[in-house]
């Protein structure tokens, strides 16, 4: 098989991992809201909505460890993790697919795998970082001059300012700036559930999805219920968009209920559940803004805007400086309008 070309590997060190499963009948405040109230930035985050429940995963800088444990009422021994990002993926589904195969075959546990426009990030235990870098370097085609780059933002800034003194200005945006809010309508949402032992097989299935030149627009995988993984992939449509009324893409059953039903269909003793067909048609909203990676309240603002306008989010993935949100087919425009209340788009 031809090696897949990428340009680089980036490392995010000294982070900690938080998860939340919100189950019907157990009301609780979403973790992202609590973090937002306390002005704590998330480095990456993901949200899978299943029926009335949702799974949430996020990464914080380790310096927030005590504060986060205190405000969230969780144990102080939150897992120390790091993030390995590879870029650019050019929408090639084989990039996340191969990455999952590598992790699965090496038996390396991951906490979250999520993509942005250009990057695929995986959150792993810090002790596995070197092994993952070696695996990626051995399988992907990297430029000869490549070295994994670890960004230590504060040190970089200090060093830079010593060399090039600058005038610095601080401001607080009235509305959060973006480079534009994009809507891609009529994409396929695929769902794969697998046990930890079947992660490599799930990665292989993903690679097969890409066999017909379909590009992917969002990947988000995180531990699901019962020791397994829940994986969502949004791809180009494989067939003509079904002729349906906007907003009624899922027929009489709500879109989030479809995901919930599908999860229940997956028998507990089955290692991998993926029948090859898209789960449903969705619209994907994606936006990217200056300093999204350095500030708090982005995901919370997006979720608030959509909630106010009654647009359900099926899957959300945030990493680097971008956010992607899958919403039911036909609701992309409504989502774009809702987001315009909290975000400034040119």
């Amino acid at each position: 098989m031809k090696q897949i070309s990428i340009n680089g590997i980036r490392l995010g060190r000294k982070m900690l991992q938080l998860d939340q499963a919100m189950i019907p009948g157990q009301p609780s405040v979403p973790v992202y809201e609590t973090l937002s109230c306390h002005r704590i930035n998330m480095v990456c985050a993901g949200l899978h909505h299943c029926g009335t429940a949702f799974l949430f995963s996020c990464c914080l800088e380790a310096k927030h460890k005590d504060h986060a444990a205190q405000i969230l009422g969780c144990p102080a021994d939150l897992p120390d993790v790091c993030m390995v990002s590879i870029y650019p993926h050019h929408g090639n589904i084989q990039v996340p697919g191969v990455l999952m195969q590598l992790l699965g075959r090496a038996g390396i546990r991951f906490f979250h795998l999520v993509s942005s426009h250009a990057v695929v990030c995986v959150v792993i235990e810090t002790k596995d970082q070197d092994a993952v870098i070696s695996l990626v370097e051995s399988v992907f085609d990297l430029p000869p001059s490549h070295t994994p780059y670890c960004q230590e933002i504060e040190e970089d800034i200090t060093r830079f300012l010593q060399k090039y003194p600058e005038t610095r200005a601080f401001y607080v945006e009235e509305k959060i700036k973006t480079y534009g809010i994009q809507v891609r309508a009529g994409l396929d949402l695929h769902q794969v559930t697998c046990t930890r032992s079947a992660v490599a097989d799930a990665g292989e299935q993903m690679c097969r999805m890409g066999g017909s030149d379909k590009k992917f627009h969002l990947v988000s995988a995180m531990p699901g219920p019962e020791q397994g993984y829940e994986l969502f992939v949004v791809t180009d449509p494989g067939a003509a968009i079904p002729d349906m009324d906007p907003g009624s893409a899922a027929g009489e059953t709500g879109p989030t209920q479809i995901i919930s039903d599908r999860m229940e269909m997956a028998p507990g003793n089955q290692d991998l559940f993926f029948d090859g067909t898209p789960l449903m048609t969705v619209d994907l909203i994606s936006f990217h803004g200056p300093h999204f990676g350095d500030r708090y309240k982005i995901l919370g603002t997006a979720m608030d805007c959509l909630k106010q306008d009654h647009v359900p989010v099926l899957v959300a993935g945030c990493t680097g400086a971008s956010i992607s949100l899958a919403v039911p087919y036909g609701q992309g425009k409504a989502a774009q309008n809702a987001l315009a209340k909290g975000f400034e788009a040119p």
Partner: peptide
């Protein structure tokens, strides 16, 4: 030209 701060507000600078 920009320098992003990993701080609680968005900040920028330009040369």
């Amino acid at each position: 030209t920009a320098v992003a701060d990993s701080v609680k507000t968005t900040s920028y600078t330009h040369h």
